[in-house]
């Protein structure tokens, strides 16, 4: 339960409690504004009845032909609002927008190979690993093996326009590509 609304530029003044988190990056202003100036319909916020931001999602639409899809660039929920279905609502919403507004075939996202909680959550929502992207992230110094910490999974979920599930595969974890092979 929350208020879902569009993400606004001035929300950058209010997202501290969400962004001061190990897995969440605070990017330059230009990052957020470049998304808002191209895909404002793929950026959203959920807030509490008291008006406090619980989390946000920033996405984009890319690819052509059978590669046309929605992409989740950033999704983050403040620790105190986790386990309330906030992410699930964001993802369902983004899937709807990718399908209806952009006629996408699937939605994809990147996640650190060591962010086990997130991977499990996305799998629960119907996402699966499409490939492993080598050295996609910077090292966090958490003490995992360097490779696991820097590699990312590209996870995908097919949308209704891909009824044959051509955009996913079962052996994705074994397919390894380097970071410069992905967009």
């Amino acid at each position: 339960m929350s208020v879902t609304r569009s993400f606004k530029a001035t929300d950058l003044f209010k997202f501290n409690h969400i962004n001061l988190d190990l897995w969440t990056e605070t990017y330059a202003i230009s990052f957020y504004l470049s998304y808002l100036s191209r895909w404002p319909d793929m950026c959203a916020v959920q807030e509490t009845p008291q008006g406090r931001m619980m989390g946000y999602v920033i996405g984009k639409a890319e690819g052509t032909g059978t590669e046309r899809h929605g992409h989740v660039t950033a999704l983050s929920v403040a620790p105190e609002y986790r386990r309330l279905g906030v992410s699930r609502r964001f993802m369902a919403w983004l899937e709807k927008v990718s399908d209806e507004n952009y006629r996408g075939l699937f939605v994809d996202l990147y996640v650190r190979c060591v962010n086990f909680a997130a991977i499990k959550m996305y799998e629960g929502m119907g996402y699966s690993v499409y490939r492993r992207v080598r050295e996609y992230y910077s090292n966090l110094g958490l003490g995992h093996s360097v490779r696991d910490e820097e590699d990312g999974f590209d996870m995908r979920k097919p949308l209704p326009r891909d009824p044959m599930r051509r955009s996913v595969r079962s052996n994705g974890r074994d397919i390894v590509v380097s970071a410069n092979e992905v967009p």
């Binding site: 530029a9 191209r38 404002p40």
Partner: peptide
């Protein structure tokens, strides 16, 4: 940088964002 995105929002016809970019 920010004014460049106001320009971009005009270029890409994302009028809904412009007042907020200006306010920001």
């Amino acid at each position: 940088e920010t004014s460049e995105f106001i320009v971009r929002a005009f270029g890409g016809e994302k009028y809904s964002q412009i007042p907020d970019f200006i306010l920001f």
